[in-house]
Computed example of a mutant assay.
Amino acid sequence: MSISIKPNTTGLIFAMREEQEGLQTLITDQELHHIAKRSFIQGNLWGHPVVMVLAGIGKVAAASTTSLLIHHFQVNQLLLSGVAGAADASLKVGDIVIAQELLQHDMDASPLFPRFEIPLSGKSRFSAQQDLSLDLQKATQAFIQEIHQHLSAEQIQEFQLQNVRMHTGLIASGDQFIHDKQVLNHLKQALPDLLAVEMEGAAIAQVCEEHNLAFGILRTISDSADETAHHDFQSFVKNVAAPYTLGILKNYFENKNE
């Protein structure tokens, strides 16, 4: 299998097919590569080389896919966009969180190592690359100002998206779909600055750090990570989170400097 390596390529990872809804049709000059039971779509998006892939759900799937993007396609940065559950009372459904730090909330090798610390690494938190994070923040703020261009008035009303806000801070990942308020409260007690919970970001962050690769994690709040978390979840991902991704990535790539 021959893969043509393009400089300054961005890897785009998604955990669920619904999260990348509509994006594939916008990628030009497409080349399809099948590696390790995954389909990688290589091409150009708003004038920039990209490789898009559906990783699957969970930390192992995310880490494996990240490694494939690095070694087979030599991406120079990686972006993950998808949904997450809110872990802070200041966030509401439809808000956007851009990770500054990520950790694995289900990592616990105590008493040999402190809770959350990755054994033998000496750290529990992985920091996103600042310049990339700032660019994503600018793209997100611009999207919020033009949200009516991407979602219908009916969608905005249905999901109460009249006052969408952007947040930056800590996102925690684990192989668990959190839908229990008690579980979430225990996490929040251990991590007071926690903003959101999901299932992939921290694994991607760890692999990227090991390879000195810039990464950005962008999450749309789909639920409150409590007993109501499954309500209208698929509808929200397809009809809200996917248009968010399209709009924010468009702003990001159209303003990205080579």
Rank of each mutant, 00 (worst) to 15 (best):
N8S: 12
G11V: 01
I13Y: 08
E18Y: 10
E21V: 15
G22K: 05
L23H: 03
D29G: 12
A36P: 01
I41L: 15
V51S: 04
M52V: 12
A62R: 03
S64H: 05
I70R: 05
H71T: 14
H71C: 15
F73P: 14
F73R: 12
Q77I: 11
Q77M: 14
Q77D: 09
L79K: 11
G82S: 12
L91D: 03
Q100L: 15
L102R: 02
Q104A: 12
A109F: 13
I118V: 15
P119I: 10
S124I: 06
R125N: 06
F126K: 04
S127F: 15
L132Y: 10
L136K: 01
H148E: 15
L151V: 08
A153G: 06
Q157W: 07
Q162C: 04
G174K: 02
F177C: 12
V183G: 02
H186S: 09
A190K: 14
D193M: 04
E200V: 00
L213P: 09
L213R: 04
F215P: 04
L218F: 11
T220A: 00
D223R: 01
D226Y: 10
D226K: 04
Q234C: 09
N239H: 12
T245R: 01
I248K: 02
I248A: 00
K250H: 14
N255A: 14
N255S: 12
